[in-house]
Write a protein that binds this DNA or RNA. Structure first.
Lengths: 331, 331
DNA sequence: TGTCGTTGTCGAAGCGCTTCGACTTTGCAG
DNA sequence: CTGCAAAGTCGAAGCGCTTCGACAACGACA
């Protein structure tokens, strides 16, 4: 249908018997148009299958209708969560008639500068922002509207969205205490994760330690994620704290191993011992018995991030910082 | 640095003391330029941090420098594989100085028409193409350069890339036979997957059944992927074929359950019984003992797909059909 | 010395769209 | 019946880039 050169606004205008500018105004709604004219234009648009040329539009209007999403591609990131995030963002962006350009974090600050200078996108979403993130400074300098997932050390003037990890830690502790546990522990993330984004891990720790507030004894144990280390850590933990009856695991790959280690130690999870996971549903459901869990609500975060970005593109104000309440799923 | 309006080619030209067209030619290399001039231009580009305005470029040159990637977002897709694919594609595209626009399959054929008509992308990569895929017809009509991952029923005139699933089935059968198994079975995908993309599942089956070629008895058992069904299916299988000593599992979520069922039945995997997985490494490594496996080489496929697309954009010929040899990883 | 390719550079003409100012109509108050 | 604002529409001027044809300048060749 669409010829090799595509349908232009001029053809639509001719068919509707109006000027090209009128077609433009009908489509954008930036000037009032009589219903009769609007109708004829819309008909012509439909009959011709007209879609504005994205390049021409962006050139003339200084709006590309595209936002960039920069994904981290380091090892250690949980891929399914990333994917959920990406798809959530695309779905939400399309709702606002925007497209999404995918970038990877290894393009770094230079990548940001590139897309900004070439005006190929109107805004940016940066995922998995670290505490000390080299992209943040560039971002600030470029002045492109942006939303970050995660909180850098200096969030001044930036829009950030994330799960409220402090609350997540607290929710886990509360859950265990409510099950009657008087001695609980948090099996933390692997060292690599801690090293990179201390903020995130720190916040879970604080929430977990602060949650019981005297109702139980709480400790935090960092833990590597290979089978052997997990087995050893759990064993040491149980020796060090023989009265322990509750465990929160904030370390996705380790969950399965933890369950084995507990079984080996004679703990019956769900009966005389309680475990709660901070991680994706699949992780909590892969083991037996299924565990209660607090997940990172990727789609939700993506939705919020995109929505905030859209509002910034429209010149509206959005909160600097948005923390999503964690949700405990019992099973 | 970059003002709100960005650096234009005119400013670069002024700084280098040449015409704008000369700058353009230096950057594109489409006409010969004296080394001295080229040098001055490149210096000006660097000093000013110039990046061509993407919209203007696409308007004038009819080339957007962007390709679209349409990802499936159905349940049942293995998310990490998708993510690997996406990141592989972006990395490879950037190598050719192209960007990647992310779309989701739920935009359907209309989405393809949209991006084609708006000239926002130069080409398309469609992931996870099904045997009867409604997008294929539209794709053909649009005439946009494209590459598919997977094979639709009528691949006439299309460029398709995929893992050679027939070979994958054969490799698994061979592996088991070489371990001395004389009676083997393939525990197939869940029904939903079969229903959707028979081609894929069929090919594994054929390869698996044809592999032994008289050296062993081979059967294929389809299998749902919840724990209970897997337990039952494995039990039935072992009753039906008491001499069975080799099993290939082409059903990611089921692998863990299969191992439990086999242990319950007293089979010692790796000793008197052999199991091989068709699926991602993590799946094969999550169980004990680690299993040999054939994976879907997502990054590899993405790389090939992008490379082929780039060549098509340059008007070169590429093979209609590319099958990637499966690789068995022993552990 | 005149002619002809080469090589390197320039100016101008768009690409298809948005947007601004101006113009024509229409409705209504005076 | 006149005057004026509001409503609806148009034409033209770019947005920043690529590309085409033209044109100097320069050797090489006859």
């Amino acid at each position: 249908m669409a010829g090799p050169r595509g349908v232009t606004i001029a053809e639509v205008a001719a068919r509707a018997g109006v000027a090209a500018s009128t077609v433009s105004y009908v489509l954008s709604g930036k000037r009032s148009i009589s219903p009769a004219t609007a109708r004829r234009v819309m008909d012509a648009v439909a009959e011709l299958g007209y879609h504005p040329h994205a390049g021409a539009r962006s050139l003339a209007s200084r709006r590309a209708g595209v936002v960039a999403m920069m994904l981290p591609l380091r090892d250690g990131m949980h891929l399914p969560v990333l994917m959920q995030f990406a798809s959530g963002a695309v779905t939400e962006a399309r709702r606002a008639d925007q497209d999404v350009l995918l970038m990877t974090a290894d393009e770094g600050p230079a990548g940001l500068a590139r897309v900004a200078a070439s005006a190929i996108v109107d805004g940016l979403i940066l995922m998995d922002v670290e505490v000390r993130d080299p992209r943040v400074e560039t971002l600030r300098r470029l002045g492109l509207p942006s939303v970050l997932i995660g909180f850098p050390a200096d969030a001044e003037g930036l829009t950030c969205v994330d799960l409220d990890f402090t609350a997540a830690g607290r929710v886990c502790a509360d859950y265990l205490v409510e099950r009657g546990c008087r001695d609980i522990a948090l099996l933390g993330a692997s060292e690599a994760v801690y090293a990179r984004r201390t903020g995130f891990a720190e916040r879970v720790r604080e929430g977990f330690l602060g949650g019981p507030a005297g109702r139980a004894h709480a400790e935090v144990w960092p833990c590597p994620d290979d089978a052997v280390s997990v087995q050893r850590t759990v064993k040491e933990l149980l020796v060090a704290r023989p009265e322990l009856t509750g465990l929160a695991v904030h370390n996705e790959p380790a969950v399965g191993h933890v369950m084995h280690a507990l079984a080996d130690a004679g703990k019956r999870v769900g009966e005389d011992f309680h475990v709660v996971v901070i991680g994706p549903d699949e992780v909590a459901e892969r083991v037996h018995p299924h565990l209660p869990s607090v997940l990172v609500p990727a789609e939700r975060l993506a939705e919020i991030a995109v929505r905030h970005l859209m509002r910034k593109l429209d010149g509206e104000d959005v909160p600097d910082s948005t923390l999503v309440e964690p949700q405990l799923t019992t099973r």
